[in-house]
Write a protein that binds this DNA or RNA. Structure first.
Lengths: 227, 227
DNA sequence: CCTACCGATCGGTAGG
DNA sequence: CCTACCGATCGGTAGG
């Protein structure tokens, strides 16, 4: 009970630090100091640094799902949900769900050259994410909203590239237009692949919308900080 | 003389390690061991770890310019040079010019949450790179090859996003289609922005080419490894 | 460029 | 969850 709450508080802090300083740069001593507990007391919850890193990854996945995936899948299948993933992801960097930007972008580039279980877990998390995007593309095709000729993995690659590119422009370059550039790129591509409704026999309506209105700000995800 | 050669050898090794394990994960002791010299002997060349990191960044910039920028600017200004930058960058990851993938992508995501002189230098290097891409776009517009309506910074953002996305797919996910997906995305976007030649009064020729033929492999950049 | 050393911190352990 | 400790390694220094 108590132990579980402590463990959860440790991990919430751990992912925040890791998003700023890296999952390898995360040290047990620093984390313990930060939480006002002894190093060995904290250590006892995990047994090794590697287990701490793997547990932090799980915690980051939950935070990501709560802040990106769940909001996105509230939109109906097809084109709206595809836009929902874009909005979910771009809101997620804007709102600094992780203080150092996307935890997974950072971890992906940090571990791509370091073999081991942590790298494998990071790669697995990204496989899941890419599969989620691909599935959303496939559903949009099945709903007749999107050009059936585009390969889902191709479009998922492009969407994720723009997401990571927005994170880069935002976090390193401090480009305040980063998110708007990402929207421009995503909509240019997605609108170009959108199939025009054939049900209406009348002349094509003008393409719908230009940039989706920003969703009302989510309240910084309620359960996110406890420590 | 001798000292300069030693210093250069240290730095070539340093950027290789940093591309794999990060610029912060690079340690003086490990680097010295690796080169068969004493820690303090190596240290004397730089005076601090930070100076070593900054020097490694300069070395990485040179390697990047030799392998990406110089080949690209051999192509004539305008659309061909834009394609040259794409080919240069994608060849650069394919050929593993840095063993851990793009040094600058890794450094960008590693340092975006760590304030200090190294972060500033990484950001400066990326500013230079983005400015180089923007200039290439602007020249393509001035040459009448590219839609004058596209903002150079927007297109540079999109191109760089695809580059980083290819590095991610290639290095972390081991996706062997990464480079081909990147080509597909880049050409889809660039061809769409290409202005059709107006000089010929005849019907539009079919869009030229689909995917540029791979350039003959460059001989892994000659002066790259010495130690 | 070396040997020899510094205090601080690393991940991890013993024992309670 | 703690104190007290381990060997190894960190960045860095003294002196040659």
């Amino acid at each position: 009970m108590k132990g579980d709450r402590t463990r959860a508080a440790i991990l919430e802090r751990a992912v925040d630090i890791a998003s700023l300083e890296g999952l390898e740069g995360l040290t047990i001593g620093r984390l313990a100091d930060d939480l006002g507990m002894s190093k060995s007391g904290l250590f006892a919850h995990f047994g090794s640094k590697e287990e701490l890193q793997l547990a932090a990854l799980e915690t980051a996945k939950e935070r990501f799902i709560d802040n990106v995936v769940r909001p996105a899948i509230k939109a109906e299948r097809g084109y709206p949900r595809l836009i929902g993933f874009c909005r979910g992801w771009l809101d997620y960097v804007t709102e600094q769900v992780f203080p150092g930007g996307c935890f997974f972008a950072a971890a992906s580039f940090e571990f791509d050259g370091r073999p081991g279980p942590v790298r494998d877990a990071v790669a697995g998390a990204m496989d899941d994410w890419m599969a989620t995007l691909e599935k959303a593309v496939r559903m949009a095709q099945e709903a007749g909203h999107l050009d059936p000729g585009i390969e889902p993995a191709q479009l998922a690659f492009e969407m994720n590239s723009i997401f990571f590119g927005a994170n880069f422009a935002c976090q390193l370059r401090g480009d305040r237009k980063a998110v708007s550039r990402a929207w421009t790129a995503l909509l240019q591509r997605l609108e170009g692949l959108r199939t025009k409704p054939t049900s209406s026999p009348r002349a094509r309506p003008a393409r719908r919308g230009t940039r989706p209105a920003p969703r009302r700000a989510r309240p910084a995800s309620g359960t996110r900080r406890r420590s």
